[in-house]
């Protein structure tokens, strides 16, 4: 490819192969406007959640009955809810909850899926069959129904939602990891490593994992909106975070009752969900295009 060749030649000679590779990837990412847009949206959501306490003078749970259901104004940019709480503040703090849930759930289920998937793919046949049976059983439950059942049993809380999301999303990761491991397993370099004395942990950790972690990270990025939406959905149904802790789902639920007269409540709960979904999806797609050139659309 002449473009890559010129890139390689243009790169400063002091760089090592790995650095040059990284520089080329960065350049390809910057050449993708949707990806950069997605990255900006993600940055916006993440920074606004981290700096929520700096960005707003109000407390998310501070009730001010004098200004119940106030319209958007200079004091309250997105108005207030039925208890007079500043909606923008609640949205910003709600982002913290959403991202916290996403970060915890995705990292735990990614790690769990990675380990279980590699074991299923590389381990003995009986372990594979057992794990696949469990994954399929878990995946056959609709997430919301499963969540309803668990919440009824142990009561609603943030931890309950996280547990439900982790349990239901591990099989998805694990199946992909398993398939990748199965196809890698027969590769000659795995056999070569075994012939040079590597044990199972070393084969999986040093040689299989780096080969599958890239696509998996992209999948994880695309899964952030899914997890955020599930959390919002459960909180909307009142199964998630307990009031007065703000969540985008509970903001939507609060606003839902007053949708005819004060639509800004519902809009305020919905817009961040849209931004998150778009941002992470665009970012994930751009990353996928960079790391897996085979899937790239013909240009």
């Amino acid at each position: 490819m002449p473009a890559q060749l010129s890139e390689a030649i243009a790169a400063p000679t002091g760089m090592t192969g790995a650095q040059r590779e990284r520089a080329a990837k960065l350049r390809r990412f910057l050449g993708d406007p949707l990806g950069v847009f997605g990255f900006v949206l993600v940055l916006l959501i993440v920074l606004s959640a981290i700096f929520a306490h700096v960005l707003t003078p109000y407390e998310p749970a501070a009730i001010d009955v004098k200004v119940r259901l106030a319209e958007p104004s200079f004091e309250h940019w997105v108005g207030t809810d039925q208890l007079g709480r500043d909606v923008l503040t609640r949205v910003l703090y709600g982002g913290r909850i959403a991202l916290e849930v996403a970060a915890i759930c995705i990292s735990v289920s990614l790690a769990g899926g990675l380990v279980l998937g590699m074991l299923a793919g590389y381990g003995p046949r009986w372990l594979d069959s057992t794990l696949i049976l469990i994954f399929d059983a878990v995946r056959s439950f609709p997430t919301i129904m499963f969540a309803l059942a668990v919440v009824t049993l142990v009561g609603p809380s943030l931890e309950t939602i996280e547990l439900v999301i982790i349990v239901t999303s591990i099989p998805g990761y694990a199946r992909i990891v398993r398939t990748q491991t199965l196809s890698l397993k027969t590769n000659e370099f795995i056999l070569a490593e075994r012939a040079l004395g590597a044990n199972m942990a070393r084969v999986l950790g040093v040689h299989v994992m780096p080969n599958i972690i890239g696509p998996l990270m992209i999948l994880a990025s695309m899964d952030v909106p899914v997890v955020v939406t599930i959390e919002a959905g459960l909180s909307f149904l009142g199964l998630g975070v307990r009031p007065p802790t703000p969540s985008w789902g509970s903001i939507l639920n609060d606003g839902y009752a007053f949708i005819r007269n004060t639509p800004w409540l519902v809009i305020a709960g919905g817009v961040p969900l849209i931004i998150t979904t778009l941002g992470f999806t665009f970012l994930g797609e751009a990353l996928r295009d960079i790391f897996d050139p085979k899937l790239r659309r013909a240009t």
Binding site: E188, F189, L191, L196, A198
Partner: peptide, 18 residues
Amino acid sequence: RGERISMVFQDPMTSLNP
């Protein structure tokens, strides 16, 4: 394996982790 007996494989295109 790898310490007392080593092995070189047929196809160098596939025998090194990419």
